[in-house]
Structures are given as structure tokens and as C-alpha cells.
Amino acid sequence: MEITLTLNGNKITASVAPDTVLLDFLREHGCASVKCGCETSGCGLCTVFLDDKPVLSCSVPVVRADGHKVTTLEGLQEEAAEFIGFIADQGAEQCGFCNPGFVMNTIALLRENPDPTDDEIRAYLAGNLCRCSGYEGQTRGIRAYLNAKKEGRL
């Protein structure tokens, strides 16, 4: 099947099998940030934006993205760069394998709610599993970023 979608701002047309999932399609199209951590739609590693909403790319048949806009971390490097240093300052990236999904969903959170409480951060990111960090360092990092932003230190 032939599909056309906008990937990170670039219009691409591709021929795909009817059962190709967006996750595999994206990895084949140079988006190595998109990771697979489970086969059960539950880990959040493959989070991308479909028309600006964070979704699990493992659960989207790519044909469904035909005519839509898909954004991966490759397309949001600058927006990510604004806050990831604060995560790094906590050491909370650890192995890094879950980071792209976590960073994507954090971007989604901050777009939707620019001033979240710690509990709102935890609730919004609940679908992003991480086995290394114990999560609290990630929350501290986001908090430090928000504080820095409020205090005009960015």
C-alpha cells in the first residue's frame, strides 16, 4: 500500500505492507530514537506524536498514519535540549534506553501543562517505564527545569 505522511516536517511517500506498525516503519526511516520495550502496549519506549498527541507507535498500523503528521525525538531536538540537561544533572538518564519515550512524553506534558505539580508529572508519565532510575531523579530533573524557568535562569 502506498502512504504519504509528514515525518518530522518532511513529507514522505512509502510503500508499506498492510500490517506494518508505525514503530517499525519509523526505525526503518532513520528514527532510531524510537525503541521497542515490550509487545504489549505498555512500556512507553516507542512514544511518538501523531498529530501532536503522544501515542504508542507500536500500536499504530502505519496505514493509519497515512495523511497525518508524525513527530519523533529526531524532530524535536531543540525542544528536548531545553530541559534534558536537568535530567542529566541528576544522572537520571542511566542506561538511556527508555529516554526517548520519556523525553517525548515530557514534551507532551509540558506543552499541555506548562506548570505541573510533581504528582501531575508522575501521573502524566506513568506509562513511561524505566527500570534503572527509580523515577525520582527524573521528577527532580523536571522540577529543577521548571524552577529554573520560573526564576528566569534559562
Binding site: S41, G44, P54, V55, L56, S59, A126, G127, N128
Partner: peptide, 9 residues
């Protein structure tokens, strides 16, 4: 239910 990304789908 799982997470925001799941519930968005």
C-alpha cells in the same frame, strides 16, 4: 489505564 500514550489511542 497504562498511560496517557495508551489512552490517546
Amino acid at each position: 489505564i497504562v498511560g496517557v500514550q495508551f489512552r490517546n489511542l
